[in-house]
């Protein structure tokens, strides 16, 4: 990882350049969430006469918080389960499960996220729970698939060498296989997070709290201004997380190559 010296201007500049994908959406997001009212004159023409210009039923900071909470909780649980499962089926004792697990991960990704969301409602009712469950289930697949891919691309001679210097199977896993597979695993987590941000938006149709409710309120009352606010904020959030994870990935693979 590049060392950052705050005093050296070229370094600070390089830092800003490398992180611009994260910083630009972050600043825009903060501006929109905190100072939405400054945009009222611009948005006036998109609003039906007499209707509120800015979404008022909840603050954007609150909605962003709820949206993120859903995503973080479900993806944290999904990462834990999916990575554990991928480790288990890639051990010799899990070999019976490997072919089925592989094709399930492949098949499961053809499942539309909205279908998973809709099926969770009869199971647990309306609210944030069906969204949490759908995000969790749908988040499993990319993480599982990428963990398997990452573990299987660790070269056998590296594992042999680790065994040769006296490491036990657990040590080989923790100190060799997982660190080498980490960039690929993080890619899987990134995919899951991006899909989740999108699915959580649709989650507002089943009464989950989040930014989708701004868009849906706009759709229901023909208020284009609401649609614009909700849409832009969600889109910025997805871009922010995509860029953030990509930065983490490139930092990790840089660290590995050097």
């Amino acid at each position: 990882m590049p060392a950052l010296a705050a005093t050296a201007t070229p370094n600070a500049f390089r830092f800003l350049l490398a992180w611009r994908g994260v910083l630009i959406p972050l600043l825009l997001l903060l501006y929109l969430a905190l100072f939405t009212s400054t945009l009222t004159p611009l948005l006036q023409s998109l609003t039906p006469v007499g209707a509120p210009v800015i979404y008022i039923r909840d603050s954007f900071i609150n909605l962003i918080g709820w949206h993120l909470l859903l995503v973080v909780l479900s993806i944290a649980a999904a990462s834990l389960i999916a990575i554990t499962a991928a480790i288990l089926v890639s051990r010799p004792s899990g070999a019976d499960f490997l072919p089925l697990a592989r094709s399930l991960a492949n098949l499961g990704q053809t499942l539309p996220p909205v279908a998973v969301l809709a099926l969770a409602v009869p199971a647990v009712g309306f609210g944030s729970w069906p969204a949490l469950i759908a995000l969790f289930l749908y988040g499993l697949l990319p993480i599982f698939e990428n963990t398997l891919a990452g573990l299987s691309q660790v070269r056998p001679e590296i594992k042999e060498a680790a065994k040769g210097i006296g490491m036990g199977p657990m040590q080989v896993l923790w100190r060799v296989e997982l660190p080498l597979a980490l960039p690929v695993i993080i890619t899987g987590v990134r995919l899951s997070v991006i899909i989740s941000i999108g699915t959580a938006t649709i989650g507002s149709t089943v009464a989950a709290k989040g930014l989708g409710e701004v868009i849906i309120a706009g759709l229901l009352t023909d208020n284009l201004s609401f649609i614009l606010q909700g849409g832009v904020i969600v889109a910025l959030m997805a871009m922010l997380f995509d860029a953030l994870f990509q930065r983490i990935e490139s930092c990790l693979s840089l660290g590995q190559n050097s």
Binding site: L46, I202, I215, I227, G230, G231, V232, V234, A235, A238
Partner: peptide, 18 residues
């Protein structure tokens, strides 16, 4: 193109409606 891909579907539909 990848940036377009990250935009959630409901947001994309809404933004294109305008």
């Amino acid at each position: 193109l990848s940036l377009l891909q990250t935009i959630p579907s409901l947001a994309m539909f809404g933004l294109l409606m305008i």
